[in-house]
């Protein structure tokens, strides 16, 4: 005889599935990077308590289906070394994940491996995880190393896109125009030539670093500081799927963390408690309150770098089915 509190179960990162009596366990992997030693532990859970299968989630976690509700405590015990190793904040040790609303922080492979990435996406994702988890409000955050946006940050509530500010040492430039060609063909055509030297259109430049990558003489190098484009409130879904829009350009890490944390206060204040399951996506809340009100909350106490451009107001598009 099963007598379950489904709300508690969901908060514990288990799913109510279509199969009566069976659940699925979701494993967070912030930044999408884990050491191989954890795979046998995940395998063990799937083979001991699940149906032997593992689903790779869109958010770069693992989902182990076919677990009996009655085995949740045993599974939680087996999850503990994984939770510890991945450094997940936990309110009660041994009891599994204590929230599920704030989704796994995903990240592209980043500068650990990718030649295009402008920063270590995994490290920033882990740092963000430390700041905002556990929290049961429904937030989706993703990090991508460059404007190629392989992780698809524009489908998230918060998308963080890496930028570098190209530094030009004209005395090292031979005018080969490798940067100009790369920018024209692979990026936004922000470079032009004047008297055999390169002029960067700072208004157009997206900080992708193609000029730096393609420069054969180190005339172009990266800025010591990494900057980010913060894009807001992209979403999928039934009513109005849409891409995230730019909020900050050339923003800093601190400003982004502060804005995301401030947004929790905003949501706590404005969320519709009567919404189904008490859940309402941030984007729809902002649609109700208006962007100006959101911005007031989001920017509370945020210190912006002198370079940071704030887009105001933001208008979202997308497809309206409502």
């Amino acid at each position: 005889m099963l007598d379950l509190n489904t709300k508690k179960i969901k908060k514990n990162a288990y799913r109510i599935t279509k199969v009566r009596g069976e659940t699925a366990s979701r494993i967070r992997v912030p930044g999408g990077l884990l050491t191989a030693e954890l795979l046998p532990l995940i395998q063990n859970i799937a083979e001991t308590y699940g149906n032997g299968r593992i689903h790779l989630t869109t958010r770069q976690g693992f989902e182990i289906p076919g677990i009996k509700f009655t085995d949740m405590e045993a599974v939680n015990a087996l999850l503990q070394p994984i939770i510890d190793k991945l450094d997940i904040n936990q309110e009660i040790p041994g009891k599994g994940y204590t929230s599920a609303g704030t989704r796994n922080i995903s990240a592209c492979i980043g500068s650990n491996t990718c030649p295009f990435a402008t920063y270590n996406t995994t490290n920033f994702a882990k740092k963000m995880e430390q700041e905002i988890f556990p929290n049961d409000l429904h937030f989706k955050v993703a990090f991508t190393g460059c404007a190629n946006d392989c992780i698809k940050t524009r489908m998230q509530d918060f998308g963080i896109i890496g930028m570098t500010e190209p530094q030009y040492q004209k005395e090292r430039c031979i005018g080969c125009q490798a940067c100009v060609k790369a920018c024209q063909k692979k990026s936004v055509d922000a470079l032009s030539v004047e008297n055999y030297r390169i002029v960067r259109n700072t208004e157009k430049c997206v900080g992708c670093g193609e000029c730096v990558i393609n420069c054969p003489t180190r005339a172009w190098t990266r800025s010591p500081e990494t900057y980010y484009r913060l894009v807001l409130m992209g979403r999928t879904g039934k009513r109005n799927p849409r891409l995230a829009e730019d909020f900050l350009v050339w923003a800093t890490e601190d400003a982004i963390i502060k804005i995301v944390k401030n947004t929790y206060d905003f949501v706590n204040h404005y969320i519709d408690r009567e919404a189904p399951g008490g859940k309402e996506h941030i984007g729809y809340i902002i649609d109700r309150t208006g962007f100006e009100e959101y911005k007031k909350w989001a920017m509370e106490g945020v210190e912006l770098d002198l370079r940071t451009i704030v887009k105001n107001p933001i208008y979202w598009g997308g497809i309206h089915y409502d």
Partner: peptide, 15 residues
């Protein structure tokens, strides 16, 4: 060593 001045992020150049 020119820290971070290499072709890719966090890669140095020695010149």
């Amino acid at each position: 060593r020119f820290v971070g001045d290499g072709t890719f992020t966090n890669i140095d150049t020695i010149r």
